[in-house]
Design a protein around this nucleic acid. Structure first.
Length: 448
DNA sequence: TCTGGGGTCCTAGGACCC
DNA sequence: TCTGGGGTCCTAGGACCC
């Protein structure tokens, strides 16, 4: 890396157009998980790297070199093993603790650059940024300034797309990533001409908001480029692409903003913990242990956002017998229950959750996945103490705080409930995880 | 042998009410 | 024989995203 302070482009306020329509930028980390792994293994900086999903199931992040070697996104690990061996690709299990910390550093950098209120964290590796109206040159220059600063401060390289709407900014970012040499990872689509040229070159399936089934539908109707979609009427889009969603999509492609910057609500409306089993299970006890463990993880997330839940849903997924060419999950067998009052106390959630298992478990079937979802969330501080239960029960929340503190400072699961079991033969595989360099003392990066 | 996890929004349709 | 209209709330399921 050769970024000297002098290389940083200065934000060019000359180009700001007073009173014009503002611009939006999407800042997207390049191969984020791979970049995080490389940060602590500089020897891998030019080598192909991939990162696996939970359970070492699928490939979820690929470095450019791995993409070039022909490793596809989201394919099962075992299917890529021959390519991995052939090209000597470095493989990591996902290390969410590390990625979460580096993500925070990137977002903080953006907040410092453009102001806290102008950053909307969209996912672990992406953020939308609100910008004033600017000339095309000023926009491109500002994108470069963001990219270089983030890379210099955090070591993570990002791509930047800038345009009048979120959907066009995503399209700009797609082009920025597609040809990094040419774009230097920054593309701005400010003028109508720039937007037309860009949309003509992008296939409709690569547009943000067009997933697999809409893409198939559109192509069958003869609409293949993003430009063709842009030119369809709003009524048509509403009818074909799911109502207001479709209408919004074509408007955004035309440069009319319909998707606003979101207030940063870090309070989720639903909290889920779901996992594939390390190996399939058929006994009800293992499933109950898994459900208890997932409930306890979900409850922890619940308390972190200071909420309590009223509704508990659980599901289990049987392993299909036939190995069809088209892999798909399902059927998913689920059930739910609503509690008389919302709670965030783990054992008050575990008990009903485990009871639900009996309702859907079938003797003799083999299961591969299970999950717990908590919904009907309320603010924890507003929950009334219940007058009709012993006072000791209202102290549950304090016990939970203690447990969370101990688990946070020691190890994630040093304290747990007996229902979670101790054998854990259903536990997920994670054989290739790197150390949590930035958040655990005993795993800190060493320089010798 | 081996196919992730965690979210959001929207719509349709049923139940229920007056 | 003939069986309204309009509103709300809830749930299930489909689509999308990273």
């Amino acid at each position: 890396m050769v970024f000297q302070p002098g290389n940083i482009a200065q934000p060019c306020t000359d180009g700001v157009i007073a009173g014009g329509t503002g611009l939006k930028a999407i800042v997207d980390c390049n191969s984020f998980y791979c970049s995080c792994e490389r940060l602590f293994k500089p020897g891998l900086s030019k080598k192909p790297v991939v990162v696996l999903s939970n359970n070492d199931g699928c490939i979820v992040s690929r470095s450019d070199e791995a993409k070039q070697a022909g490793v596809d996104m989201a394919i099962p690990y075992f299917q890529a093993k021959h390519l991995i061996a052939k090209h000597d690709i470095a493989v990591f299990s996902s290390n969410y603790t590390l990625y979460g910390d580096l993500s925070w550093r990137v977002m903080e950098t953006l907040r410092m650059l453009v102001g806290r209120d102008n950053v909307e964290v969209y996912s672990v590796d992406e953020a939308f940024v609100d910008l004033p109206a600017m000339s095309p040159e000023a926009a491109a220059n500002y994108g470069l300034y963001i990219r270089q600063t983030v890379e210099q401060w955090t070591g993570i390289s990002v791509s930047v797309g800038i345009a009048p709407t979120k959907t066009l900014a995503k399209a700009a970012n797609y082009l920025a990533k597609k040809n990094k040499q040419l774009t230097r990872c920054v593309t701005a689509l400010v003028t109508p001409e720039e937007q037309r040229n860009a949309l003509q070159s992008i296939r409709v399936s690569n547009i943000w908001g067009v997933g697999r089934s809409y893409a198939e539908k559109l192509i069958n109707m003869g609409i293949t480029s993003a430009w063709e979609l842009r030119n369809m009427s709003e009524q048509w889009a509403g009818k074909q692409l799911g109502g207001v969603v479709g209408t919004r999509l074509v408007k955004e492609l035309r440069g009319e903003p319909c998707i606003d910057m979101q207030e940063q609500l870090d309070t989720k409306k639903m909290i889920a913990t779901t996992r594939m089993f390390g190996s399939p299970v058929n006994d009800v006890l293992s499933i109950k242990e898994a459900i208890a463990t997932y409930t306890s993880l979900a409850a922890q997330k619940l308390r972190r956002q200071r909420c309590a839940a009223r509704t508990i849903s659980i599901f289990i997924v049987p392993k299909e017998e036939d190995h069809a060419v088209d892999f798909h999950h399902g059927p998913i067998i689920s059930t739910r229950t609503t509690l008389p009052t919302a709670t965030s106390v783990t054992n008050e959630l575990i008990k009903p959750a485990v009871q639900l298992v009996e309702k859907i478990y079938e003797e003799g079937r083999v299961y591969k996945k299970a999950g717990v979802m908590l919904s009907g969330l309320e603010n924890d501080t507003c929950i009334q103490g219940n007058l009709f239960v012993p006072e000791s029960k209202n102290k549950g929340r304090f016990l939970m705080d203690m447990m969370d503190n101990i688990n946070f400072s020691m190890r994630d699961d040093i304290l747990k409930f007996a229902a979670s079991g101790t054998s854990r033969n259903w536990k997920m595989r994670q054989e290739l995880r790197s150390p949590r360099f930035t958040t655990r003392w005993e795993e800190m990066f060493e320089v010798r």
